[in-house]
């Protein structure tokens, strides 16, 4: 198994590699979205890489995560395959969800990734439920919910954290505070200046960490995991970070200044981690160039895989509603397909 922890040299290099992979994957996803090959909406994780990677490096491979609409980074940090991810973004049969989910619903339950989510704040109740399953079956796992700063205002997030803390479930709530809930600054959405203070309402530990520092994130999650496994209940961690791209691709970003973006980019998580590894003698510029080149090639392969993959057959639209077919869908499908092969929706 790949060494993936901030505590070993190999693990640190792997962490850097995953951060770079996220950036390259999302850079290309943005390009192919702009070109029109990726339909729908995409929300890119560029700038926030240290949060997902620091978190997942501190988790065990068997642990479960719930994600957000900005989920590509969580997937890559958790170890999902970039070819299957890209195929899903392209709406292809070989994608993780056979083209039914796309960027906002990418999931791989088998790998412990319980889904990106198009509803802000919907992940934490699911993670609480996953923690309930873990607790009920006494499994050696934890469930971690990624949520954004905007989600902290959602009612169902409160219900989820309250339930997890009341039952001492092995859960972790990881708030990615990237300063904006969609286009509205965090100050206009909350009366608290530190979102981790919400933890006080549940009598659980709450801490704010530098989300541009992969090691700081990993240390906080490691501690939270230990606490969760000891049966002491959840922890709420706020990671202060910043997204370099808009809320979604195409967002005009008139709500922030170039200066603000540049200030955050000066503290870029990948650059600083790379420098740290070089300073420690664990990486050379040549190593880095080599790593970057390999990642560019891997993501180019992922694009090619996605482009060459087939679209799902149209009649697959009727599959996967239930564990078994229901007569209603069978009958409706038969009528539509008998009358010409589509429900009038073909352009």
């Amino acid at each position: 198994m790949t060494d993936y922890t901030l505590e070993t040299e190999a693990g640190r290099r792997e962490s850097l590699r995953r951060m770079l992979t996220i950036r390259e994957f999302d850079t290309k996803a943005g390009q192919y979205f702009a070109d029109g090959e990726i339909p729908g909406f995409v929300h890119l994780y560029i700038g926030e890489e240290a949060v997902a990677v620091g978190t997942c490096a501190a988790l065990d491979p068997d642990d479960l995560i719930s994600s957000t609409h900005r989920g590509h980074g969580h997937c890559i940090a958790k170890g999902l395959d970039t070819e299957l991810m890209m195929a899903e973004l392209f709406g292809k049969e070989d994608g993780y969800c056979n083209g039914k989910g796309g960027s906002m619903h990418i999931a791989d339950v088998e790998s412990g990734m319980l889904g990106a989510n198009g509803i802000v704040g919907a992940g934490p109740p699911l993670a609480t439920g996953a923690a309930l399953s873990i607790d009920y079956q006494d499994r050696d796992q934890v469930a971690l919910a990624f949520l954004g700063d905007g989600a902290v205002a959602q009612g169902q997030v409160h219900e989820a954290i309250n339930l997890a803390s009341t039952w001492d479930l092995p859960a972790i709530f990881l708030v990615e505070n990237n300063r904006y809930g969609e286009a509205t600054p965090v100050e206009k959405q909350h009366n608290l200046s530190q979102l981790s203070d919400t933890a006080q309402a549940y009598d659980i530990p709450g801490l704010t960490v530098d989300g541009m520092d992969v090691t700081a994130v990993a240390e906080a999650v490691k501690e939270a995991r230990k606490r969760a496994r000891a049966g002491d209940g959840p922890t709420l961690i706020e990671a202060e970070t910043y997204r370099y791209r808009g809320h979604y691709e195409g967002d005009e970003q008139n709500y922030r200044t170039d200066e603000e973006l540049e200030q955050w980019q000066e503290r870029d998580a990948i650059d600083s981690f790379k420098r740290r590894l070089i300073d420690r003698g664990e990486l050379t510029e040549d190593d880095f160039e080599e790593m970057q080149a390999a990642i560019e090639e891997a993501i180019a392969d992922a694009i090619e895989y996605a482009q060459e993959s087939e679209f799902p057959a149209p009649e697959e639209a009727y599959d996967d509603m239930f564990s078994e077919s229901v007569p209603e869908i069978e009958a409706f499908a038969e009528r539509i397909r008998t009358d010409g092969g589509s429900n009038g929706g073909d352009a």
């Binding site: 996953a130 309930l132 989820a160």
Partner: peptide, 14 residues
């Protein structure tokens, strides 16, 4: 919302 959400997450995880 918490009850139903937790039940949903639990049902997806075994």
């Amino acid at each position: 919302a918490g009850i139903i959400g937790a039940a949903t997450g639990a049902a997806a995880t075994g």
